[in-house]
């Protein structure tokens, strides 16, 4: 039995069917990448899993327990944290308050919150330096760290990350990916949605490709990275930064 098991998930926005039967699994200790173009349904998949959207049909099981119809705040307590696209930190609260809110479930156990907060500060010392600042004053990279740190306050079984590298400088993207690897080593399984397909597949164990609301491919990450269809659509067949230099003349 997989840790996170999604089968035949259908979600609608009004009359538009955004998910047309998504099935995927995340095993314990795995990093699973979910790739696809914009509007394919990646974000909707995460939002449905974490209870922000309601599935029309299908099921989501976390450690064997059915969570499809549970509300978002219950799902967090069952061990699934979702770091939404665009970070969504509370800019009007301090960093310390943001982290405290991440552990809202433990609000009656201040000692535990304090301990978890220490752990997060150890991983992100920069957050400790600024703990009393309003989160809105952080730079983009620091905000992403805060968003991840906040989700880690409950030490979830599964962490769903939506585009953690979006809008970040290349040097920060690398840092974030390294943090994701650290989190996996700590024992949290990760479901990673990324535009940056190449880097995501380098990090992940397995990957799924989603197109117009359906999973069209899934395989080991290495195999996917070599798959010609994937290369054409998501990797653009492109070499890396250093050798790209204006060679693109296809237009």
């Amino acid at each position: 039995m997989a840790l996170l098991e999604i089968s035949d998930l259908h979600t609608f926005y009004g009359s538009i069917e955004a998910l047309r039967g998504i099935s995927l699994e995340v095993e314990e200790g795995e990093i699973v990448a979910l790739l696809g173009s914009n509007g394919a349904g990646k974000t909707t998949t995460l939002r449905t899993i974490s209870g922000l959207e309601r599935a029309r049909s299908g099921s989501v099981k976390l450690a064997g327990e059915e969570i499809t119809r549970r509300r978002a705040h219950d799902i967090v307590s069952l061990g699934l944290s979702h770091v939404p696209e665009g970070r969504r930190i509370f800019a009007n609260l301090t960093i310390e308050e943001n982290l405290g809110l991440g552990a809202y479930l433990y609000r009656r156990h201040p000692a535990l919150i304090k301990e978890r907060r220490q752990t997060v500060y150890e991983i992100f010392p920069r957050l400790l330096e600024r703990k009393d600042q309003l989160a809105g004053t952080l730079s983009g990279g620091e905000q992403q760290m805060l968003a991840i740190g906040r989700a880690m306050m409950v030490q979830p079984k599964v962490l769903a990350l939506d585009e953690p590298s979006m809008g970040l400088a290349p040097i920060l993207v690398r840092q974030i990916f390294r943090i994701i690897e650290e989190i996996r080593q700590r024992g949290t399984a990760i479901l990673l949605v990324e535009q940056n397909a190449l880097q995501a597949l380098r990090l992940a164990d397995r990957g799924y490709v989603i197109e117009t609301g359906r999973i069209v491919l899934h395989d080991d990450a290495k195999a996917l990275a070599q798959d010609p269809r994937v290369r054409a659509a998501y990797l653009g067949g492109e070499p890396e930064v250093d050798t790209a230099q204006g060679t693109d003349t296809t237009n």
């Binding site: 705040h73 969504r88 809202y104």
Partner: peptide, 23 residues
């Protein structure tokens, strides 16, 4: 904690939900 949650959800309801707040 509930007071903090109030301030948080005035800023971003969905994000508050993801923290386990019953909005």
């Amino acid at each position: 904690a509930v007071g903090t949650a109030m301030r948080a959800l005035s800023f971003d309801q969905d994000a508050a939900r993801l923290m386990g707040v019953n909005v």
